[in-house]
């Protein structure tokens, strides 16, 4: 049994014919070809796969593509506007918020929601806000710094 799924990915309406078991992360990676959304675990722990669904951070490995039908999905590839990097992306670059880069898309997408909730989020609030994201490289220090700075600098 297959299903039709219509969703907007990074502002572009797309339609797919999928098995109901297809996970949103696989739809994005294999069907849309947006491989920026990484998959780091199989128990929904790492947050590498985080995307925005109707503006909210979700783990795309824990959403069925059919559940996302009709939703607006923003991935790391669609975060920046026409005028360059999103402030959170820029801040990760400026503050060495990444090493291997694998957790980075998920970190950035989560950071967008953290700052959306509180643009003035401080160190402790950001550390708490990242409880669903794992980075094995950076020790989080510069990720936290990047997010706090992006907020204080005034992001969307």
């Amino acid at each position: 049994m297959r299903h039709r799924v219509c969703l907007s990915v990074n502002g572009k309406a797309e339609e797919f014919d999928v098995e109901p078991r297809l996970l949103l992360c696989h739809l994005l990676r294999a069907y849309v070809g947006l491989t920026g959304t990484n998959i780091g675990c199989d128990t929904s722990q790492c947050g590498s796969c985080t995307v925005l669904m109707d503006g909210k951070a979700v783990k795309s490995c824990t959403v069925l593509a059919v559940q996302a039908d009709g939703c607006e999905v923003t991935t790391i590839e669609g975060l920046a506007g026409a005028d360059g990097l999103h402030p959170v992306q820029q801040s990760f670059w400026d503050h060495h918020g990444l090493q291997c880069g694998f957790c980075t898309p998920g970190m950035i997408m989560t950071a967008v929601e953290i700052l959306d909730r509180n643009p003035d989020a401080g160190d402790a609030e950001v550390r708490h806000g990242l409880e669903g994201n794992i980075c094995r490289c950076t020790g989080y220090e510069n990720i936290v710094k990047s997010i706090v700075a992006a907020g204080a600098g005034g992001t969307s």
């Binding site: 109901p20 996970l23 128990t43 929904s44 490995c61 824990t62 959403v63 069925l64 059919v66 559940q67």
Partner: peptide, 26 residues
Amino acid sequence: LVAGGHSLIPAMKLRAAQPAALVDIG
């Protein structure tokens, strides 16, 4: 039933749960 799917889908990904059908109430 599936609502948010955040207990069910993790179990299904590990194939610890293998329902024949899902009824989405979301």
